[in-house]
Design a protein around this nucleic acid. Structure first.
Lengths: 194, 194
DNA sequence: AATATTTTGTACTGAATGGTACACAATTAA
DNA sequence: TTAATTGTGTACCATTCAGTACAAAATATT
């Protein structure tokens, strides 16, 4: 059953692919660049990913979502004050040392790039981005229950609101070179959580 | 001095190019697709646009900005209540028959796509998008003067806030297939203008 | 009508694209 | 030790990419 062992670990090369796609987007990430980054040859790649670059992209989106949503959910579970945590979560985007500062949100970027190019991939990115809304929603519900969220608005609505803030922020950080300019904006946007 | 006459009008073919770039983005718009849409041949194109596709994209961005900012400024100048007009301006994005509903914002898309691919083009798109902030800012200042804007916040800050809302909205419309879902979100975001 | 000037259509180019073919290498099971 | 199985490296492929060369066409000037 098992012949020659794989020289690579699928999760590791997916992480490399995520970096490339996140930085360059889908179209501008050539298979050559991707293979270089992943450190594997063509035949290994096409054996593992029969669907080629497109399948790799789908898997990369999924893994990126799994990792970041898992981390976020864990942090929320551990946090005392979920509202304060959410605020810091948004503020992190303004940190010039964060990947997101330069690259924005992988899902948002993919939606913008592929909306009219590849409906299926765009829909995939959309649904993965909606996981973030879901995480926001449950956190807000819990915060409402434990009293840290005083706002009268529906948590479901607030979650959609936050997702839109998220989307805007990830574009705006690349418009305003100085993160200080955006800080008061984000604070203003997050006032609904007061 | 004047030889064979041009078979095309530069503004008209730029409008066609805008449509293509807006729909597909930069990378996925091949010169072939562009030339087909513009209805001209290669030699005519490269004679008029020595810089090729890249120059065409720059000119397209500029023209798109000129046209839309010109229109917006005119509408603002004519409007009685600038705050109400700005609200309707944002609500228009949610109209499924608007181009923006499917394609988002050309500048925002370009920033997302080219941020790490072509710094110069990304910077160009950014600075053109900042024109929108400028238009917002002057409108808000006037509204504050004439009393239609009651908010105590600095108009400059509010203008940046609106631009971020704009950026988020143009991603979110492609995440939420049903524009009704977004309407209350936008209303909430625009409450700062009350 | 001849000439200068500019634009256009066609054919071509070299490079890059995503993807295959296939012989060979490394492992496990018989 | 041999066979079966699976993975890898190299060479190759057709297509598409952005862009050029150049001759022919259409105009204005003389």
């Amino acid at each position: 059953m098992s012949g020659r062992p794989k020289i690579f670990n699928e999760e590791e090369i997916l992480d490399k692919a995520i970096e490339v796609f996140w930085k360059n987007g889908y179209e501008a990430s050539s298979t050559e660049i991707l293979l270089d980054a992943m450190g594997i040859g063509k035949s290994s790649f096409y054996l593992a990913f029969k669907g080629g670059k497109r399948e790799l992209f789908e898997k990369a989106l999924e893994r990126r979502s799994d990792l970041s949503m898992g981390k976020l959910q864990r942090e929320l579970d551990e946090s005392e004050n979920k509202i304060e945590f959410l605020k810091s979560f948004f503020m992190e985007v303004l940190d010039p040392s964060s990947k997101r500062f330069l690259n924005g949100c992988l899902m948002g970027n993919s939606i913008a790039e592929l909306a009219n190019i590849d409906l299926e991939l765009k829909t995939k990115a959309s649904s993965l981005l909606l996981r973030l809304e879901k995480v926001f929603a449950t956190a807000l519900k819990e915060a409402k229950k434990d009293g840290t969220l005083k706002a009268k608005e529906n948590p479901e609505l607030l979650a959609k609101y936050l997702l839109t803030v998220w989307n805007g922020l990830n574009i705006s950080i690349r418009v305003y070179p100085d993160p200080k300019l955006l800080k008061p904006i984000v604070e203003k946007q997050l006032q609904v959580l007061e």
